[in-house]
């Protein structure tokens, strides 16, 4: 019953499980609230701050609880995604408490949902497929470059080659961008 550290890993493993057992696997999302674990520290700080002001000693005690009530952290929510297949007993889990991830996680649920429904195209597959096509395109382009004779054939295959080359170019650009950032930082130093 592993918890994955990365949601991507969870998505990958879950999609594999769904591939193997699309009919029995279910995905449960559990959102639960807990009272904040850290109770606000006893009123030492408040008292210290209030003592110099010399407010009447008996009245302050009632306010601190109210203040604490205001200061107490709101209950902390947690989100646990669980992929479970009762037939094989496989359980895959991912846990987070970050609000920023919710949208992405629901998108992942959607991706897995498409796989679950048996709709052909899933995003992960699409990416992999594009990568594969790109590779094939490059190979074809190389072959055509080596042969380089057929006039009617050149246009479509050349397009394929171009399509294949675009991906590596993009990747290079992205990598170059990353490198550029690093260099800029170095330059500032």
């Amino acid at each position: 019953m592993p918890y994955y550290a990365k949601s991507e890993d969870w998505l990958h493993q879950s999609s594999l499980l769904l591939q193997a057992r699309p009919s029995t696997t279910r995905i449960t999302t559990r959102y639960h609230l807990k009272p904040a674990r850290r109770t606000p520290k006893p009123n030492n700080n408040n008292k210290k701050s209030e003592d110099p002001t010399q407010a009447a000693p008996p009245p302050p005690p009632p306010p601190p609880p109210q203040q604490d009530g205001g200061e107490t952290k709101p209950p902390r929510g947690h989100l646990v995604l669980k992929t479970y297949d009762p037939a094989s007993g496989v359980t895959l889990k991912y846990k987070t408490s970050k609000a920023a991830e919710v949208t992405r996680l629901v998108q992942m649920l959607g991706t897995l949902g498409r796989r679950m429904a048996g709709v052909a195209v899933a995003e992960g597959e699409g990416e992999e497929g594009q990568g594969g096509e790109g590779m094939v395109g490059v190979v074809e382009g190389g072959e055509v470059g080596g042969g380089g004779s057929g006039s009617g054939v050149q246009t479509p295959v050349g397009g394929g080659g171009g399509g294949g080359k675009e991906l590596p170019l993009l990747q290079q650009q992205q990598q170059g961008g990353g490198g550029g950032k690093g260099k800029k930082k170095k330059g500032k130093r």
């Binding site: 959102y31 929510g77 408490s97 970050k98 609000a99 920023a100 629901v106 959607g110």
Partner: peptide, 28 residues
Amino acid sequence: VVQPDELAGFYARYAEVCKAGMAALKPR
């Protein structure tokens, strides 16, 4: 029940409702 052709629309709304409902998660 979500029909296969309604999946995209459903999950878009699903994400909105979840995002709005799960307010106790850590903000960025």
